[in-house]
Amino acid sequence: MQGNQVAATAACGFVPVIDLSSKDTAQGRVAIAEAIDQACMNSGFFVIVGHEIPQGLINRMFTVTKAFFELSHEEKSRVAHRPGVSGYRRMGGTTALSLDQETPPDLCEAFSAHVTGELSEEERKKLGDQWATWTLANIWPKSPTDFQDAWQEYMAAMGDLAADLMRLFALALGLNENFFDDKFDHHGSSVAVNYYPPQVEPPLPGQLRRGPHTDFGSLTILYQEDDRGGLQVLQGKDNWRDVSAIPGSFVVNIGDLMALWTGGRWVSTMHRVTNPQRGDTSSRLTIPFFYLPNHDASIEPLRLYAETSDGHRQFGTSVTAGEWMSRKLQKLFAGTA
């Protein structure tokens, strides 16, 4: 797509498809930025194609990760998340806790690794003293044998893609394209894969594969299986909209911190992962990359956009990214405020 064709995608549906293939031209970047702005004001979600992430890398990441989750519980537990390290969680938490909602545990297993998890212990001690996952070391399974290599290559590729999306975000907000660069130059981003096992028993009342929630940080880049549904985005008060998987695409959404950063111009939208139909015992795998600012980055709401419909300025409160994320993560994993 070129120029106005890219921009036109933003008007096509609650979660539009935006083609990034023209992002290497000045005209193309402006058009893409306009489409992103419209999507983020409307739903906070959009789908990207033309992103240049090699399909071979995506396939390899998916293959090794699925193979890991299909190992026995004993094998997976060898790299279990525990004090000091980030790895496998038999239950991926109760996501609704981040919004102070009580629900049964999500029907999900998870494995996470952080960009900062490869740093030395001495270097990680410099990442703040908050209750925070980005201060943990990564722990890698020995099987599949190429698991670590695939994950590290994938994290690096996602980091590059996310950095360019943030530059497009800056253009969309009328800022210098490099406005966000120094807020992410030692970011604590992560890949936290969700594995939804086959449901051989009925879920509890109110129990979902992932409960309703918003994301916490700046942006999320999600790969989901082409032939497995489940992701839904909330439109209005009670209209849940399916987000279908387009082959070779990624779903992008902004988080609460990004919404605050824009002074409320952009929205961080509730989403969930529904259960399969009764009798469907297939599994599902999604691969989200959470792009987070530096732990010590000061997030100042952009005054240009911090204006309510009645004309009153509402700038919001400045926060430090690490403190913000720590509070959210404590609710999710520790059940504390």
Score class of each variant (00 low, 15 high):
171 L>W: 08
172 A>Q: 12
172 A>C: 11
172 A>I: 11
174 G>R: 12
174 G>K: 10
175 L>P: 00
175 L>Y: 04
176 N>D: 15
176 N>M: 05
176 N>T: 14
177 E>L: 02
177 E>G: 01
178 N>W: 01
178 N>K: 14
180 F>Y: 13
181 D>H: 06
181 D>T: 13
182 D>V: 07
182 D>Q: 11
182 D>S: 11
182 D>F: 00
183 K>S: 13
184 F>K: 05
185 D>L: 02
185 D>P: 02
185 D>H: 15
186 H>Y: 08
186 H>A: 07
187 H>V: 00
188 G>R: 11
189 S>N: 06
191 V>E: 00
191 V>K: 00
191 V>S: 11
192 A>S: 15
194 N>Q: 15
195 Y>G: 03
195 Y>S: 02
196 Y>C: 01
197 P>Y: 15
197 P>T: 11
197 P>C: 11
198 P>R: 07
198 P>Q: 02
198 P>L: 05
198 P>K: 10
198 P>N: 04
199 Q>L: 15
200 V>K: 14
200 V>M: 08
200 V>I: 05
201 E>M: 08
201 E>A: 13
202 P>I: 07
203 P>Y: 13
203 P>G: 09
203 P>K: 13
203 P>V: 10
204 L>K: 15
204 L>P: 01
205 P>A: 15
205 P>M: 09
205 P>Y: 14
206 G>P: 06
207 Q>Y: 13
208 L>G: 02
208 L>Q: 10
208 L>E: 08
208 L>H: 06
209 R>A: 05
209 R>L: 07
210 R>L: 14
210 R>G: 04
211 G>R: 07
212 P>R: 13
212 P>E: 15
212 P>A: 15
212 P>L: 11
213 H>C: 04
213 H>T: 12
214 T>V: 09
214 T>G: 10
214 T>E: 09
215 D>N: 14
215 D>V: 09
216 F>R: 00
216 F>I: 06
216 F>G: 03
218 S>Q: 13
218 S>L: 05
218 S>D: 03
219 L>G: 02
220 T>F: 00
221 I>L: 15
222 L>Q: 12
223 Y>K: 12
223 Y>R: 14
224 Q>L: 03
225 E>G: 04
225 E>C: 07
226 D>Q: 09
227 D>Y: 01
227 D>T: 10
227 D>P: 00
227 D>A: 06
229 G>H: 01
229 G>S: 08
230 G>L: 04
230 G>M: 05
230 G>F: 07
230 G>T: 06
230 G>Q: 05
231 L>C: 03
231 L>W: 04
232 Q>D: 05
232 Q>G: 09
233 V>S: 09
234 L>E: 04
234 L>K: 14
234 L>N: 05
235 Q>M: 11
235 Q>A: 12
236 G>S: 11
236 G>Y: 12
236 G>E: 12
238 D>C: 01
238 D>F: 00
241 R>L: 09
241 R>S: 01
241 R>K: 13
242 D>C: 02
242 D>A: 12
243 V>C: 04
243 V>T: 05
245 A>D: 01
245 A>H: 02
245 A>E: 02
245 A>T: 01
246 I>W: 08
246 I>E: 08
251 V>A: 06
251 V>E: 04
251 V>F: 04
252 V>H: 08
252 V>F: 06
252 V>K: 06
254 I>G: 03
254 I>W: 09
254 I>E: 06
255 G>S: 11
255 G>T: 07
256 D>P: 05
257 L>T: 03
257 L>S: 02
258 M>D: 03
258 M>K: 12
259 A>V: 06
259 A>N: 06
